[in-house]
């Protein structure tokens, strides 16, 4: 069971990564303000798999994974709600784990496997989680919805893999897919329309537990 410790390491990396990104931004703007505004962007090659297809990019190194998906691949399902990792609308699955795609640069994902909402199902062939969201009306405006669904798919996998959460009473026992566990784990995905009660019903339905 390496998952929990991997997760912890990822969180630390993320904090370090964020701090570094902030530092770079401010120093580069100082640099640019001093003179050479004519230095062009750093263009970097990167390739990764998106929804089963290998994609090659040549990207401005500042491009987030979110903008690579939205602005370069025109996969619009992954939403930009805050661009700051505060709302969860941009949640995608990378190598099977959910992340905020706005908080990570595209060039950091060389060789990885990205699954977006478009990779889960289509209007004519819905993924069970997508179908459950429709059935339980787990959305209104629909803007946070792809992120909620990707997150929900990730949550059920995490519970299955035995990853504990803040509300798990016993960190070593297999967590249950209780409503409290779902609410806690889904709390990084904001829905301002307030469909939470229905979203929990949808996820519970897919998890096989009685609502």
């Amino acid at each position: 069971m390496h998952f929990p410790s991997d997760l912890a390491a990822t969180r630390r990396d993320l904090l370090i990564g964020t701090a570094a990104a902030v530092a770079t931004t401010s120093s580069s703007s100082r640099l640019a303000a001093q003179a050479p505004a004519d230095i062009g962007p750093v263009i970097a090659p990167v390739s990764f798999e998106v929804n089963g297809a290998q994609r090659e990019f040549s990207l401005d190194a500042r491009t987030t994974l979110l903008d690579a998906l939205r602005e370069h691949l025109h996969l619009n399902g992954t939403k930009k709600g805050c661009d700051h990792g505060q709302c969860g609308a941009c949640t995608v699955l990378v190598d099977g784990r959910r992340i905020n795609s706005c908080l990570t640069l595209a060039v950091m994902h060389q060789g990885q496997r990205v699954t977006t909402i478009e990779g889960l199902g289509t209007p004519d062939n819905l993924h069970p989680m997508q179908a459950a969201f429709v059935k339980h009306d787990g959305f209104q405006c629909g803007y946070c919805t792809p992120g909620q669904i990707c997150s929900a798919v990730g949550v059920l996998d995490e519970i299955k893999a035995g990853v504990p959460s803040h509300v798990s009473a016993d960190l070593t026992a297999t967590p249950e897919g209780s409503e409290a566990e779902i609410r806690e784990r889904m709390s990084g995905n904001i829905c301002r329309c307030g469909a939470y009660s229905n979203i929990v019903d949808a996820i519970t339905d897919v998890s096989g537990r009685k609502a």
């Binding site: 939205r70 996969l75 619009n76 399902g77 289509t122 209007p123 429709v134 009306d137 919805t145």
Partner: peptide
Amino acid sequence: LDRIDGPRKVTGTARYAYEQHD
């Protein structure tokens, strides 16, 4: 009834303002 735009919203194929690339 389920929303008629539901399948588009849950699959990311409902297009919002900034997404009208074409």
